[in-house]
Amino acid sequence: MHIHPKITPIYQTSVFKFEDLNELELYFGEPGSRYLYSRNGNPNSDELADAVNLLEGGAGAVATGSGMAAIFAAIMTYCASGDHVLCAADIYGGSSALLNQELSRLGVGVTYVPFEVLAEDLTPYLEPRTRLLLCETISNPLLRVVDLRGAAQACHTHGLKLVVDNTFATPVLTRPFDYEADLVLHSVTKYISGHSDVTAGVVVARAAEDAARLKQIGVLFGLTLSPMESWLAVRGLKTLRLRVEAHCRNAEAIAKFLKQQPTVQAVHYPGLPDHPQHLLAANQGRALFGGMLSFQLEDEAEVVNQFMRAVKRFPFAPSLAGVDSSLSYPLGTSHRSLTQQQQLELGIRVGLVRLSVGIEPINELLADLEQAFAK
């Protein structure tokens, strides 16, 4: 009986069988022709990696057990002990913690580059063994938009690789390879999967040799994603375009609403005309601006507490990008490990609240925010 499922089954197996030694030799002689052990590769994790690779227009990809594993794999693709990396000052707190606390122990140094010069002359920040620049397409949590083409040119002038965390934008908005980036990574946990029920990552390479290196790192460090998580992520990925468009529409409406609130001191959303990178975001984002925004309340913890208690449709859940809306508090969660000076320099203050806008009916979300501000 021939079975031809429309949806790839879950290959919930750690190991695959061989008929004889000839089949074993074929495995090593023809890479990718069959499977041996799920850490080395599994149909489900390969399906996810291939799907994101296709969306990003890459030469190959690997799926990893988390977004942090993806960041680690991306950096290790180019770095060895004694090397040095540049990192955008506006970066996810987990990325900076990895660089500061762990990769430093392995002999990989880091220098942080202010947002304003990422696409300009990087010379003042270079060291003899600087290998790459890590940045985000849209930064967390202040939603600054990097000029990717300028950053790529600034990197390649000095022989550096540009590594882009494209989690906030997704390939629906921006494909960094179109602007000459070298590696693109995602926390699949967020928009790619989209339903707050998967922890995963993926890294995509523009060059085939980098894709092969990524594969080796994934296997030898054991970063491989499980079959079940891979299957769930692929299921979520099928609606990515529809979901992202709905996230964007809702976020833009909420950003405009927040601008009108007397108690809101600032709104950070690239879709607003007064955002400093609005035109760049419109160009790189195909006139879509993402589902994330942040806004500034009075710098009093109790003011933030009152808002959190008042909203019903935005639970305080320190992650993002699910179909259900949520809010987060960068100072106390994602950027908690930064020094107070770093937090101040980046503008991450006591009153800063980040919203992950879901795909619920917009009138329900606006009504909830309206009643919360009324209190």
Rank of each mutant, 00 (worst) to 15 (best):
H4E: 11
I7Q: 13
T8H: 15
P9T: 06
P9L: 10
I10V: 12
Y11N: 10
T13L: 10
F16N: 02
N22Q: 13
E25A: 14
Y35N: 06
P43E: 04
N44I: 10
D46L: 06
D46W: 03
L48N: 02
D50N: 15
N53V: 00
L55I: 08
E56P: 08
S66L: 08
S66A: 11
A70P: 03
G82I: 09
A88Q: 00
A88K: 00
D90S: 10
I91M: 15
S95N: 11
S95C: 10
S96W: 11
A97L: 12
A97W: 13
L99P: 04
N100D: 14
V108G: 07
V113T: 06
E116A: 12
L118S: 05
E120I: 02
E120K: 13
P124Q: 04
P124F: 06
L134C: 09
L134E: 05
D147G: 03
Q153F: 13
L160C: 01
P171E: 12
L173M: 13
T174H: 04
R175E: 08
D178W: 10
E180N: 15
A181G: 08
D182E: 05
V184R: 04
G194Q: 03
D197T: 12
T199E: 14
V204K: 01
A211W: 06
A211V: 08
L214P: 02
Q216F: 09
L220T: 12
P227Q: 07
S230I: 07
A233D: 01
G236W: 05
L240N: 02
R241M: 15
R249Q: 12
N250T: 01
E252A: 14
A255D: 01
Q260F: 08
P262T: 00
H268Y: 15
D274V: 06
L280H: 07
Q284D: 05
G285C: 01
L288T: 08
F289K: 03
G290E: 05
L293I: 05
E298C: 09
E302C: 11
E302N: 14
V304G: 05
K312I: 10
F314Y: 14
F314T: 09
P315V: 05
V323E: 13
L331N: 01
H335K: 04
L346A: 01
R349C: 11
R349L: 13
R349W: 12
V353P: 00
L355F: 13
L365F: 04
E370C: 11
E370G: 13
Q371M: 12
Q371H: 15
